[in-house]
Design a protein around this nucleic acid. Structure first.
Lengths: 229, 229
DNA sequence: CTACACAAGATCGTCAACAATCTGGCATAG
DNA sequence: CTATGCCAGATTGTTGACGATCTTGTGTAG
């Protein structure tokens, strides 16, 4: 087939977007990585206009930086942006867990427990990329329970930006979430205690930011550090 | 000049975006309005590719709906979307006023008081479009004081969607905010009382939603009502 | 040896023509 | 008279080529 319906290209577009998005979430695409149109076209066997649209979407979601006439690179959040991102995340994810506590069914809780189990195994199995990915997945799963697509979409965008931050300021990538804190949050959700769940979540996020801010003091994003000078 | 730097077109793109955006905020572009590419090109003396980019951005911000092969129309939020939008708005704007209370300077408060004065005049001057616009402006001004671009951007998007909702479910457009409630919020901000400011803001938004939900019962967006049947 | 200027290569941005799809009206059969 | 099928006009989606801009390597003057 040369080209089918318009729906096909939409699907292809989402596929390319998801591929790059996942690359960022898995920290295989690190901040500053160049994303030349030509190369993306060849890799995905896609037309330039499609690749271009995807890059614009990614730029709109603050995942890539589109520099005029200089191509697209994976975004590198500044320290100030980092501060704002975590502040926004606490607000939005706090609201999400409150809502999740209202709507969560027993089946939902069971799914989360299964998720926690997978997390635990990945952590002990020393499969660190998988662990990091599962840790983000947990947050997104909880968000889905809130039954609010808008806040959920916002959180997804923010979590992806957090992935960039971790890649920048936490080279070993060991800033993943603590398993126990996740477990406590699930317990609160089970009891329908939204207020406490939100409190735990916000504390959990403060811990995560502290982990990163500590490194931020010495690990500047500039290239001096990256060359060991 | 035929064509200048790339920055010029960027500027033109933002200009077209802003024009359509303002049209929605002022309720001159109502939900369902068709936005044909050809016509936009002529109106703004812009190329088709530029218009196309703008429409994609507007679609990403949920201001227009992009139907494949059928063109772009101004978005028409469903009742369920309306529920989610107000829920999200309470969460985000609540967080924003809390932050605004922390950062607001005396000059900021003075600016807000000026804003309140303009609101009051527009209300009495029976210049309703101006009033509705100023009411939204107040919320965005408060958001700016929070010093968090991410949450501010999210609120801007949500407020624009609220404008669509009002246009849909409040034909006369008289669902604007109460002046007094705005004034109370400013007072709390002046005292640095973020918790109370957030409480007032959330109550204010609940009132606004109630105003709309009441109409939602009889005024369905479907065409039966619009034909008087 | 250093610094500046220049030019070739590569990449991005734009435009215009072509192809695919949808809408609305008309003809025709029942 | 109603319903169905079809065709023309209009609109959108895509592609390919052209022009503009930036990067980088090289050469030359100081």
């Amino acid at each position: 087939m040369v080209e089918a319906a318009t729906g096909e290209t939409l699907e292809a577009e989402n596929r390319v977007y998801a591929r790059i998005f996942d690359g960022v979430m898995d920290r295989r695409l690190t901040p500053g990585t160049k994303l030349p149109e030509r190369e993306l076209c060849e890799l995905f066997s896609a037309s330039r206009s499609l690749v271009r649209r995807v890059l614009q979407r990614l730029a709109h979601d603050h995942i890539v930086d589109l520099r005029p006439n200089r191509g697209a690179i994976v975004a590198t959040p500044t320290p100030e942006e980092t501060r704002q991102i975590f502040e926004a995340r606490r607000a939005i994810e706090g609201a999400l867990v409150r809502l999740a506590a209202q709507h969560a069914t027993e089946a939902d809780i069971a799914d989360l427990r299964q998720q926690l189990h997978d997390e635990h195994e990945a952590m002990h199995g020393s499969d660190q990329p998988a662990w990091a990915r599962l840790a983000s997945t947990f947050h997104l799963r909880v968000a889905r329970l809130a039954r609010n697509d808008i806040l959920e979409t916002y959180l997804k965008e923010i979590v992806s930006r957090c992935s960039l931050i971790v890649a920048l300021y936490e080279p070993r990538g060991n800033a993943a979430c603590e398993h126990d804190e996740h477990a406590s949050i699930v317990s609160c959700l089970e009891e329908g205690n939204g207020a406490e769940a939100a409190r735990l979540m916000e504390a959990h996020l403060v811990e995560l930011e502290k982990h990163i801010c500590l490194r931020q003091l010495d690990a500047r994003p500039s290239l001096k550090e990256r060359l060991g000078l």
